[in-house]
Design a protein around this nucleic acid. Structure first.
Lengths: 219, 219
DNA sequence: TATTAAAGTCAACACTTGTACACTTATATT
DNA sequence: AATATAAGTGTACAAGTGTTGACTTTAATA
């Protein structure tokens, strides 16, 4: 009875999802990039050597290094989006929210160090396609943040353009913060605390200006 | 630049370069990096080929690529410092100053595209020594800006730490702006104008918060 | 159980790379 | 005019690179 008249049955449902080599390639690349390299100076052979397969086996998983790079971008932003989603649930005074955001940012940046660092170093570096993809990802995050900001009472009357402007400013600031965190590799607790306080201050300062904002949009 | 008219005799006629070869190496590297490369994927041979000398001649000017990188960082920040010096002479309303700053930033970023782009792409990329050097340069700029900020009447009472915090925020924002400018290579005047307006808004928003700042330094 | 497609191996290729060494040439100083 | 030094040349070599093509192995489905 395994022959229904559906002619479209020829679609092969092979779930050979054993392919963790692909994942190992991605992870291996991230690790090697975390040391002293950039994407386009990472050789295919070095990567496969590190992963433990023969060079040519690489092509079973990616057409080339560029595509691996794009896959890494995708993966990275999937991770980052989760952070933004988490932050959205924060409530309380703006100071509380800011403190929460910074803490969450630091935590996740440390936890997902490899992905963060990859994005940071490829954002304006080497490969043009990767750069473009990261750019898109950032725009997306910024858009989501703008949408989230629109819900705050004191931002109700802001124009869409101004919200995007604010979101961009916040994303840029948070990006800079994250990059600084990644740079101080040693687990210097004191320096980290100081960095977080500076970050909180910066965000608080930005927020302070909001009530006094008067747009000059339709000038 | 001075393409040698290599009408070769039997013997190779060497073209006198009187030590501008070093400059050509630096410039050539910047140009190649502006296309699709990062410093550690730029090969010595490719560079010398592009400049028009034989590979081994490179060593007459630099011990290795790393040192060339450091020289580029130095050169770049020498250029950037000039911009900051120029801005310091601005006077008038804060809005006027901000507009001037943004305009100046855009102008110089375009004019010194290669240096700006080099710094942007190597800031968090590849080579650790270069990264460190750029980090130092940035800290220096930030310090200078903080010093400059201290002169403003409405910042008289700010603590040194808060001034540094503000300077860092401003430098980061300006950096982001510069990087965006460099990214849009096409001379799309409309997009550029929009970008500048967003930048001005961001800086204005930051400044708006200043009068309402109350430090929690000595808590 | 047999088949089949994915995943991995091996050998080979034609290049490119960094650097050492011995040399030639140009320029500036004595 | 002689010479010392800085700058450029040529050759050579061992090591690393991306990619092809023809194979073998493995594991999931028919």
């Amino acid at each position: 009875m395994t022959k229904p008249s559906r002619s479209s049955d020829r679609r092969v449902r092979r779930v050979s999802r054993r392919g963790d080599t692909r994942q190992e390639l991605l992870l291996g690349a991230l690790k090697l990039l975390d040391a002293d390299k950039s994407l386009d100076s990472l050789s295919l052979r070095e990567l496969t050597r590190h992963v433990g397969i023969v060079p040519t086996a690489f092509y079973r998983h990616f057409p080339g290094m560029d595509e691996l790079g794009l896959a890494l971008v995708e993966e990275s932003f999937r991770v980052m989006r989760k952070i933004f989603a988490e932050v959205r649930n924060d409530t309380g005074s703006t100071d509380k929210i800011i403190a929460g955001v910074v803490k969450s940012l630091v935590t996740h940046a440390r936890k997902n160090r490899l992905h963060f660092r990859f994005v940071a170093s490829e954002r304006y570096g080497g490969n043009a396609g990767v750069r473009e993809a990261i750019r898109n990802g950032m725009r997306l995050l910024q858009g989501e943040l703008a949408l989230e900001l629109a819900r705050f009472p004191f931002l109700q009357e802001w124009s869409a353009a101004d919200l995007q402007m604010l979101a961009a400013l916040l994303v840029n600031s948070m990006t800079s913060i994250a990059e600084e965190i990644l740079e101080q590799r040693g687990a210097d607790k004191y320096a980290e605390r100081e960095l977080m306080e500076t970050a909180e201050k910066q965000l608080r300062l930005i927020v302070l200006g909001i009530p006094h904002w008067r747009s000059a949009d339709a000038s």
